[in-house]
Design a protein around this nucleic acid. Structure first.
Length: 577
RNA sequence: GCGCCCGUAGCUCAGUGGAUAGAGCGUCAGGUUGCGGACCUGAAGGUCGUGGGUUCGAGUCCCGCCGGGCGCGCCA
């Protein structure tokens, strides 16, 4: 809806310029994009545009005057029923024009308000047609076709498999998955990727710890403790233990690799339970065995950004604004973690992605610039490399912070969290908060308040609608095939329908912002509007089958929007509660 | 010291430069003979950390300051 109104305003502006009522933009003026937003106040219409105010300065005219000229053209648009035929159109404009040709002009009426707002009310028959189109689209309603679809790689969680996922890892998992879902709904192709370290000191320590427990010796100082290590020790096959012992100094590595893979599989299962399925599990060691790191360093060297000093290999990061150069390969011959990062970013681009998103903990912000620098130095577009830094969650139980240490084995696992508060509530919790702000998560509170959790409020609305539809069916009533004529006379029905049809706009905004919380906020608002509607309007009335049929159709439209919003968040939409 | 993030109602948090700053929880007062009361209506509660600046318009953008978190390795 919003896209079509935006297009209508754009067209009205063009025509006003053609007619001489609005001065053309001077050549040296910055381009002005037409914006259409939902006003906070319902008295200001369904949608409004600030175009006239933005034009005022470059056009050297009073905003009110410009607004009146554009409004006059918009009024004409409403009468013409949206028959367009302009030239010089973008893909988005083409799509909007095509949709308008089917649905009719979105413009019902236009008012100009000081200092120059264009306040637009939607045409009821347009809203009705849009509602019909939404129900035809069904599960696809709410998906939008972006004009620039991309293949996006989203790498997240990426916790090293030295222990089960804990609640500290949880936020990244939710944030990453929600971002992927939003991007997919906005028309992008998404690859979910998990990067993990499967070699090196950590794995040796893990192996040493498992062996120590199995053999009844002391766990080494840097070793891992905790119940899961004991479980692994108990499960370690005798044959593997013997082979490790026979290998001499490779014993810890052999056992460690086995344990690490077991843990990784466990992590995969936890994430699957949460509803996250990764497309790619990428091991750090593979970047060395397949030559990615060497190739990337060669590429950097060829571009003149690498030098040797003190026996180490350095990246001249200072060429790109860093405060110091960074070591890629240590004098010992081993690569640094940064070396892996360089190989990895190049390897990702080599797989053909248009855009890379890394979801990292806030403590990794120091490495953001240098990885982007390296990408730029290798000739990639640094703007295509994006890091989302997820702020910390303070986990709290009854007001007291829960401290965690993976090595000491003191932590609450993700599985525990989900068992306590449930997947739906947890998804909602993380989906309704910006990833950049630090938050408190009180586990006891989350459990205690589960009945008042907003997610249940939204789910309840959905279940309630299902119940109404069942009730109608039992009394032999059915929804009308079309909303046609159902909204014109009733402001409450009309407002509810318009709100229910906003989902595509919400998806668009969420994808642009890389945040899901617009979706949770929207679902809450729609549920609230439905509950109010339910109070004021009887849906199933045996004495008035015509009105009932129309309202059932409206209610089904609302249900669809709620169900699709919840599906987008990975949350269930129950038939009853 | 330098860099990044954060500071909005009692609490937990929303708020792509727009019109009267919102939600949930909590508190207080009410509502159902008509379809699910896990619901609805109303009230109280805010110098948007602070001082400047840009703008027709700033919670939002810029600068300074205060407060909190994190990072500044040939660690991973």
């Amino acid at each position: 809806m919003r896209a079509l109104v935006r297009r209508a305003v754009e067209r009205a502006w063009e025509r006003a310029v053609a007619a001489g009522a609005v001065p053309a933009l001077p050549d040296d003026a910055a381009e002005i994009a037409v914006e259409v937003d939902r006003p906070a106040n319902v008295d200001h219409g369904d949608l409004s545009s600030n175009l006239a105010m933005k034009l005022a300065r470059p056009c050297r005219r009073a905003p009110l005057e410009l607004a009146l000229a554009i409004a006059a053209e918009l009024e004409r648009d409403a009468e013409a029923g949206g028959a367009y035929g302009g030239r010089d159109r973008t893909a988005a404009a083409e799509a909007a024009d095509a949709a308008t040709a089917v649905l009719g002009s979105p413009i019902g009426s236009v008012e100009v308000a000081p200092p120059g707002f264009l306040n637009i009310r939607l045409d009821p028959s347009f809203v009705e047609a849009a509602g019909d189109a939404a129900r035809i689209a069904g599960p696809g309603f709410g998906r939008v076709a972006t004009s620039r679809p991309q293949h996006v790689n989203v790498e997240f969680v990426s916790a090293n498999p030295t222990g089960p996922l804990h609640i500290g890892n949880a936020r990244g998992a939710f944030v990453g998955d929600l971002l992927c879902r939003v991007l997919e709904a906005a028309g992008h192709r998404v690859t979910r990727e998990y990067y993990f370290n499967d070699f090196g000191q950590q794995v040796w320590n893990l192996g040493a710890s498992v062996r120590a427990i199995r053999l009844g010796t002391a766990i080494p100082e840097d070793g891992y403790h905790g119940e899961y290590v004991r479980a692994l020790a108990a499960e370690l096959p005798e044959e593997l233990l013997a082979r490790a012992a026979a290998s001499g100094d490779q014993a810890d590595r052999i056992v460690g690799e086995w344990a690490s893979e077991r843990i990784r599989a466990g992590i995969e299962a936890s994430l699957a339970y949460l509803g996250v399925r990764f497309d790619v599990w990428k091991s750090e060691s593979s970047l060395y065995t397949d030559g990615s790191v060497e190739a990337a360093v060669a590429r950097l060297r060829a571009a003149g950004h690498v030098y040797e000093q003190d026996g180490a290999t350095w990246f001249r990061s200072t060429d790109f604004g860093d405060d110091k150069d960074r070591v890629i390969r240590k004098s010992s011959g081993d690569y640094t973690y940064f070396g892996s990062d360089i190989g990895y970013v190049a390897e990702k681009f080599g797989r053909g992605y248009d855009h890379l998103i890394y979801i990292w903990g806030a403590d990794h912000h120091g490495t953001v610039a240098r990885v982007r620098n390296a990408a730029e130095a290798m000739g990639f577009d640094r703007d295509a490399v994006e890091m989302l830094l997820v702020a910390w969650v303070r986990f709290v139980r009854d007001g007291i912070e829960v401290s965690m240490s993976k090595r000491a084995g003191e932590f609450i696992t993700l599985d525990d969290l989900l068992a306590e508060v449930g997947v739906d509530a947890a998804r909602w919790f993380f989906g309704s908060r910006a990833h950049t702000s630090g938050i408190d998560f009180d586990i006891e509170l989350a459990k205690k308040q589960s009945n008042e959790n907003p997610v249940y409020y939204v789910q309840y609305a959905h279940a309630r609608i299902r119940s109404i539809l069942r009730k109608a069916e039992d009394s032999g009533m059915r929804a009308a095939d079309s909303l046609a004529g159902a909204l014109g006379g009733d402001a409450i029905s009309r407002g509810l329908a318009i709100l229910a049809l906003r989902l595509p706009e919400v998806v668009e905004d969420a994808a642009a912002a890389h945040e899901a919380q617009g979706v949770t906020a929207y679902a809450t608002e729609l549920a609230t509007a439905f509950h109010a509607f339910y109070r004021d309007r009887r849906v199933v009335d045996p004495d008035d089958p015509a009105t009932s049929a129309a309202r059932l159709t409206l209610v089904e439209t609302v249900r669809l929007s709620l169900a699709n919003s919840l599906a987008l968040l990975g949350i269930s939409a129950p038939e009853s509660m």
